[in-house]
């Protein structure tokens, strides 16, 4: 980048110096054409030679000057164009290099970041999986314990209910029979049963009566 900038600035400075030189050359030849006197060839030659030595610009006409200026301008433009082209090429090269560099750097950084991110994601995932596994294991243990407790409680309650039911079986059946048949049991129908029972216990009852 800095080299390119220096080239641009150097080219611009050279161009400015050339322009200033051309302007100075153009202005320095004015007013010297008034001493036009008939001289011999030798004098003329000497005079020209002297003029050439003193002021090189007196040998060129205005058109030639203008032509030189144009030529210089064109050369300058050419130089400028070439420099600009070089500059452009340099810029393109630099840009591409910068792009490559940036691409490389950014890709590397991104890859690093992605790798770190993936690693951290993996770590978090691993930690989450471990935590979930622990939670599931704890939940399963708790569920098992709860199921066992519930089973024990149910068994105990069942045993208690059965024991209570068996203990009060006669009362339960009696209550059920009383509720269902109640007063509908005819005493007349019970007489054979009563007499049979009393007949069976007749002797002990008789002994008891005659005590």
């Amino acid at each position: 980048m800095n080299t390119t900038m220096l080239l641009i600035i150097g080219g611009a400075a050279i161009g400015v110096v050339l322009i200033i030189a051309a302007v100075v050359l153009a202005t320095s030849g004015k007013g010297k054409d008034k001493k036009a006197a008939p001289k011999s060839k030798k004098e003329l030659a000497e005079s020209y030679e002297k003029m050439m030595q003193d002021d090189v610009y007196h040998i060129f006409s205005k058109e030639f000057h203008e032509e030189l200026r144009n030529k210089a301008r064109l050369d300058f433009q050419k130089v400028i164009s070439e420099n600009a082209m070089f500059l452009q090429q340099d810029l393109r090269l630099t840009t591409s290099e910068i792009n490559e560099y940036l691409k490389k750097e950014v890709s590397g950084k991104l890859e690093e970041e992605f790798a770190a991110y993936q690693q951290s994601i993996k770590d978090v995932q691993q930690a989450a999986v471990e935590s979930l596994n622990k939670t599931v294991a704890a939940a399963q243990e708790q569920q098992l314990a709860l199921a066992q407790k519930m089973k024990q409680d149910t068994e105990a309650e069942k045993a208690q209910i059965i024991a209570q039911f068996e203990a009060n079986m006669a009362e339960i059946v009696s209550h059920y029979v009383v509720k269902t048949v109640g007063q509908q049991i005819d005493l007349k129908d019970q007489m054979p049963f009563i007499l049979r029972e009393m007949e069976a216990q007749k002797e002990p009852m008789r002994r008891d009566m005659w005590l």
């Binding site: 049991i185 019970q190 049963f193 009393m198 216990q201 009852m205 008891d208 005590l211």
Partner: peptide, 14 residues
């Protein structure tokens, strides 16, 4: 007693 009867003699209950 639901049905039947309970007989109470001087010394026993049947």
């Amino acid at each position: 007693i639901i049905g039947g009867c309970v007989v109470r003699t001087p010394d026993h209950i049947y």
